[in-house]
């Protein structure tokens, strides 16, 4: 009885902490929203960025930050934040819309190919649970699967066919959840894409200061990073162009 009480107290304290902590961030968020309304976009973007840096990664926060950067004429950062919001929530309409608006400002913007139907399905499936949700599911199904096995082993008399079917389904679901858990983890941790931050960046033929300039990229262009040395990154554009540029100019998504 005493133990339960202590546990309840601890839980309450934890919940209370979470609730008590939230208003501080919410206050900051509302302050930034107010600054945004007063057209002090740079200050507003600073507060949004601070919240993001603290570890809050809500898509709405990313969108607001992107909006503030967009209004403050920092197209590269605006696009970066919209992309971040989309990575969290690929079906967020306002993030997609604002990204397309911001991309209109990008010089030399090349349209990404739209996803094919099965890629969209996959995306939908991937975002059915959070990455940790998938992993938790995998754990649960693994437990069920093992429980089934144990039951089969120890209580052979208990309706063997039903148990076997149940265990089989649990096995399949376990592998499915594990696969998706791994794939979402990989997607979330892959930094193969980046946004150009410099206003006009020369793309070189080789990772070398002396090598010749091939073309120029402007702020806000989304590139794929396919290879990297200490200082230079090899990039691939949606239209197939490749080249090297200083990694400092790219902000990885």
């Amino acid at each position: 009885m005493k133990k339960t009480l202590t546990a309840l107290c601890a839980l309450f304290l934890l919940v209370y902490n979470v609730i008590a902590a939230a208003p501080v961030q919410q206050q900051q968020f509302e302050k930034a929203n107010l600054l945004y309304k007063q057209k002090q976009y740079t200050e507003a973007a600073g507060i949004y960025q601070q919240l993001i840096d603290e570890g809050y990664h809500q898509p709405q926060l990313f969108i607001n930050a992107g909006n503030a950067y967009y209004k403050a004429n920092k197209t590269g950062l605006a696009i970066y934040n919209y992309e971040k919001a989309l990575a969290r929530d690929p079906f967020n309409k306002s993030a997609a819309h604002n990204l397309s608006v911001a991309n209109q400002r990008v010089e030399g913007y090349v349209n990404d190919l739209p996803l094919l139907f099965f890629q969209q399905w996959w995306l939908h499936i991937q975002h059915f649970h959070s990455p940790n949700g998938w992993v938790t599911g995998a754990v649960i199904f693994f437990w069920l699967l093992i429980a089934g096995f144990i039951a089969i082993l120890i209580v052979p008399a208990f309706k063997p066919t039903l148990l076997r079917w149940g265990t089989g389904v649990a096995t399949l679901l376990f592998f499915f959840y594990l696969t998706l858990g791994i794939s979402t983890y990989v997607t979330a941790n892959a930094h193969h894409e980046g946004i150009i931050m410099g206003t006009a960046v020369k793309v070189k033929a080789a990772p070398d200061q002396e090598s010749k300039d091939m073309f120029e990229l402007h702020e806000g262009v989304k590139v794929q990073v396919t290879d990297a040395t200490q200082e230079y990154c090899k990039i691939l554009l949606p239209d197939g162009k490749t080249g090297w540029l200083a990694c400092a100019e790219i902000r990885r998504l």
Binding site: V18, A21, A22, Q25, Q26, F29, E54, G55, Y56, H57, Q58, Q60, L61, P131, N132, V135, T136, G181, I182, Y185, A188, N189
Partner: peptide
Amino acid sequence: VLNWVKDSRFLL
């Protein structure tokens, strides 16, 4: 109002 929850670490 946003749900101010930080990203948990990846369970995986």
